[in-house]
Amino acid sequence: MNHDRAGGPTGILRFATAPGSSSFTEFLAAAAPELMPGKVPDGAVITHGTTIVSLIYADGVVMAGDRRATAGNLIAQRDIEKVFATDDYSLVGIAGAAGMAVEIVRLYIVELEHYEKIEGTQLTLDGKANRLATMIRGNLAEAMQGLAVVPLFAGYDPDATDPAEAAKIYSFDVTGGRYPEQYYHSIGSGSLFARGALKKLWRPGLDRAAAVRVAVESLYDAADDDSATGGPDITRGIYPVVRLATANGTERVGDDELAATVRAILDDRAARPGS
């Protein structure tokens, strides 16, 4: 085959071998635009991810997301994953149109890998946040049609001169606006309730166990008041996705640890009904 169009083998080879941007997103948009996250077919059922929380603790940053995806008033999925490790030191959580959001995150992961291979170094944490903002801005047309994707980005900067300033959290809006956050933040339909819980529970210098508990407890409070946010499901063994980013890299908290944390929260709440 010797196609000479942007999407054909010859066209892709021409773009791949020509000097240009270190952005894989720009390369893909030029070489094979049909592979970019795109419009959803008419009549398709749109599922939405809901609540993501993130907070800074003594060793880095923790991010957690509930597992429910909704389609209108229905539960579309009970065990969706909304929190991803995007490279060795950064995390992204997604809220909004779930299918579109997962596609953007996958493209973003490749974007970071591509940059590192082309430039021989990783982007700074601020640079990673800027790249994500650019990708969200590129989805603005779809957002205006109701396919909004709103991420939460957090990470650890191993090159920070002050370790106390190494962990950072960034929020975004649908236009690609990027906003550094202090201490903690939450996005999604249950974010109002989760942020209220974070405000009461967060304190400086939390250790790992305490930070994981604060994240899970804030999601529990969000699920208590927001029907689109799923609480921990002990019967099915479905717990929030909780990830950490520290100087040692990223880590996913295991379900055994989360099960113990959830049971401790439930025991405390049972002792204080109405809290």
Score class of each variant (00 low, 15 high):
157 D>A: 05
13 L>M: 15
109 I>K: 12
186 S>Q: 11
264 A>R: 04
122 Q>F: 11
18 A>K: 12
150 V>W: 02
270 A>R: 12
127 G>Y: 06
195 R>H: 14
127 G>N: 02
28 L>Y: 07
106 R>V: 03
243 R>Q: 07
122 Q>P: 10
174 V>N: 11
106 R>D: 13
214 V>W: 00
178 R>T: 09
196 G>H: 03
62 V>K: 06
275 S>T: 11
140 L>F: 09
80 I>F: 13
258 L>V: 01
8 G>K: 08
252 R>W: 09
164 A>D: 12
62 V>D: 06
202 W>T: 11
1 M>F: 15
268 D>V: 04
153 F>I: 00
45 V>P: 05
91 L>V: 06
88 D>S: 15
80 I>P: 02
151 P>L: 05
144 M>I: 14
92 V>D: 03
20 G>N: 00
135 M>E: 05
48 H>I: 11
37 P>K: 10
85 A>P: 09
153 F>N: 00
266 L>M: 09
9 P>M: 15
242 V>E: 01
215 A>R: 08
207 D>H: 04
264 A>T: 13
214 V>L: 04
127 G>W: 10
6 A>C: 07
245 A>T: 06
192 L>W: 15
51 T>P: 02
16 A>Y: 11
56 I>P: 00
265 I>V: 07
70 T>N: 07
145 Q>H: 14
131 R>Q: 12
160 A>N: 00
275 S>W: 13
110 V>Q: 13
144 M>P: 08
235 T>M: 15
65 G>M: 09
180 P>R: 08
38 G>V: 03
203 R>P: 13
63 M>V: 07
34 E>Q: 11
220 Y>T: 08
